[in-house]
Amino acid sequence: MEIFRTPSDMPMRKATSNSALAEPHSQVRNTALYLFAEQGFQKVSLRKLASALSMQAGSLYNHISSKQDLLFELIDEHETDLLDAIETNQLSDTTPEEKLLAYIRTHVDFNVRHACRRSITQLEFRNLSPEQQQEILDSRNLQANTLSNIIQQGVQRQVFDQMQLKTTTALLLAMLNEAASMISTDCNTALDDTIESLQKIIVTILRAGSAET
């Protein structure tokens, strides 16, 4: 049986430890999140962000170090929260196929429920520094490694066909990201129905030619 824990809608894992500053910082983050998603990172100046928060531009530096660091914080939070959700739903006493189903559901569901952050991670990654980009890539590699390990376990147990792991993993992640994007932009696309269809398609692909067990 597939077991899935739904992530909260807007987790704030990295709230500052100073409770007096936590709320203003969260307000800045949430406002920047939607402005970046709607208008693009380059078009949102500090003045525009401050105006949306009804404060002076210079006052923003009481809550953030820079606009680029704010962008990195939003993208990093999304990727690490997604990794946490994936790991939470990978139960040790389940089969490779059950792990795969849980991975697919977690990945798509999380990205749909956090559509603004997903959009920013995809479109604004290029605006990060090389060091920041590498940190994000490290998180994405851990997500990919989890999927690769699931596939490899299935191959070893002869429930999945032999395949090139790196290529297959990359293709499956591209499918999951595209599905999340499609659901987020099409109000007529049902989340559960799409996830279940995607699960069937991916399992069929991986089981092609493999021994039935």
Rank of each mutant, 00 (worst) to 15 (best):
residue 33 L to T: 11
residue 20 A to N: 07
residue 185 T to D: 09
residue 142 L to S: 02
residue 185 T to C: 06
residue 64 I to A: 03
residue 22 A to T: 05
residue 23 E to D: 05
residue 197 S to E: 12
residue 3 I to D: 01
residue 172 L to H: 03
residue 26 S to V: 09
residue 180 A to I: 04
residue 150 I to F: 02
residue 72 F to S: 04
residue 36 F to S: 09
residue 122 Q to L: 13
residue 101 L to K: 14
residue 9 D to Y: 13
residue 84 D to F: 13
residue 172 L to W: 04
residue 46 L to T: 07
residue 85 A to P: 01
residue 117 R to I: 08
residue 202 I to K: 05
residue 194 T to V: 08
residue 111 N to K: 15
residue 141 N to E: 08
residue 48 K to D: 08
residue 45 S to E: 00
residue 199 Q to W: 11
residue 71 L to I: 06
residue 170 A to L: 13
residue 211 A to C: 05
residue 197 S to H: 13
residue 125 F to G: 01
residue 125 F to R: 13
residue 1 M to E: 04
residue 94 T to A: 05
residue 190 A to S: 07
residue 19 S to E: 06
residue 36 F to L: 08
residue 79 E to N: 11
residue 15 A to N: 03
residue 94 T to W: 05
residue 182 M to A: 12
residue 53 L to A: 01
residue 176 L to R: 11
residue 186 D to L: 11
residue 28 V to A: 03
residue 106 T to S: 12
residue 1 M to T: 06
residue 65 S to Q: 14
residue 88 T to L: 13
residue 170 A to E: 12
residue 194 T to I: 08
residue 64 I to T: 07
residue 26 S to T: 09
residue 86 I to G: 01
residue 14 K to H: 05
residue 48 K to V: 12
residue 161 D to R: 09
residue 119 S to H: 12
residue 138 D to V: 10
residue 56 Q to W: 04
residue 25 H to Q: 10
residue 201 I to L: 12
residue 109 D to K: 05
residue 90 Q to P: 02
residue 188 N to Y: 15
residue 117 R to G: 00
residue 99 K to F: 01
residue 55 M to L: 12
residue 104 I to R: 06
residue 211 A to V: 02
residue 157 R to T: 15
residue 167 T to D: 11
residue 144 A to K: 07
residue 146 T to K: 14
residue 116 C to R: 12
residue 153 Q to F: 00
residue 8 S to V: 13
